[in-house]
Design a binder for these strands. Structure first.
Lengths: 161, 161
DNA sequence: CTGGGTGCAAATTCTTTGCAGCTTT
DNA sequence: AAAGCTGCAAAGAATTTGCACCCAG
């Protein structure tokens, strides 16, 4: 792994703390699922986590993995790559632009930024491969969702602009 | 729409040019599907494109929409939000970091950058909502895929670090 | 014309849900 | 003991595929 062993312990401690605070049970499965994601450095999907955990907990089921991953996500202990729980979305803009994504609803808005466009990719990244595009993803909660308050999720972006 | 009417014409012209060059037929469906994505500023998913196009072409089918969208993506005429054709992937790192994603295989690598971490969100974006996180997505082709050449897609990232 | 493209319907893949029994608190 | 979790199996989305007919080149 990339990070020191301490880091895993710290993440697990955080899981414990959050579960206690929110009143969630700290089951064997939850710990192992969280550990699997925390230990991997390549951002596994649910199926991959399932395979990994199953090596240690043979009775684990795939649906528990899904339920737990989304639970951890709601608790803020893990995040997702790309928009959350969303089918693939397409973009016809080929010029350099960036995205603001609302974590509550499906809203995504483009924006331009000369500063962001000017970003130069670090040398270590260039060593990973050929870079074709660099764009900034800003996540947050849109004004409409913020107005509606609460932590619940809205399925429909309000502003039709 | 946000961009001038000319822009749509330019995008359609580009579609024509690319199809001709590659020897693809310029069907009514392809034009309408492309137009639907090009005209929308909220990054529709396949289902939404389907609904939109169906208003003008009642016989369109959802599978044609999928096929066409992925075709346009391969031609470089549209892109996707988040990783392409990939189930949801999870990330247990909560500290600020960024991603390099290979467009050929499923490889995703984290990297750190003080410069990227220091980015400040433009005022107009802050008006869209509350920002919780800013990260940079670098897309390209990893060294292993580059070595394998060709435009085909590899399903398995080779390097196990 | 002729082959690529489309529509249909069925198949996959990814993810969620209802329910009965088992585990943490 | 009580409520929350889990595993199972079945349901539900999202996406893909096989095949016969049709249209752009």
């Amino acid at each position: 792994m990339v990070f020191p062993a301490d880091e895993l312990a710290a993440r697990l401690a955080r899981l414990r703390a959050v579960c206690r605070d929110v009143g969630l049970k700290l089951t064997h499965q939850r710990i192992e699922i969280f550990r699997e994601v925390a230990l991997s450095d390549d951002h596994p999907d649910a199926e991959t986590v399932f395979q990994g955990v199953r090596a240690r907990v043979p009775t684990i089921s795939l649906d528990t993995v899904y339920r737990t991953l989304w639970l951890l996500e709601e608790l803020g202990l893990v995040t997702t790559l790309g928009p959350r729980r969303d089918p693939t979305r397409f973009d016809a803009r080929l010029d350099s632009h960036h995205h603001f994504t609302c974590e509550s609803c499906r809203l995504v808005r483009d924006f331009e930024s000369a500063e962001f466009d000017a970003l130069s990719v670090p040398e270590d990244v260039r060593r990973l491969g050929d870079v074709s595009r660099v764009h900034v993803e800003v996540r947050g909660r849109c004004v409409d969702c913020a107005r509606r308050r609460g932590l619940g999720r809205n399925d429909d972006p309000g502003g039709s602009e």
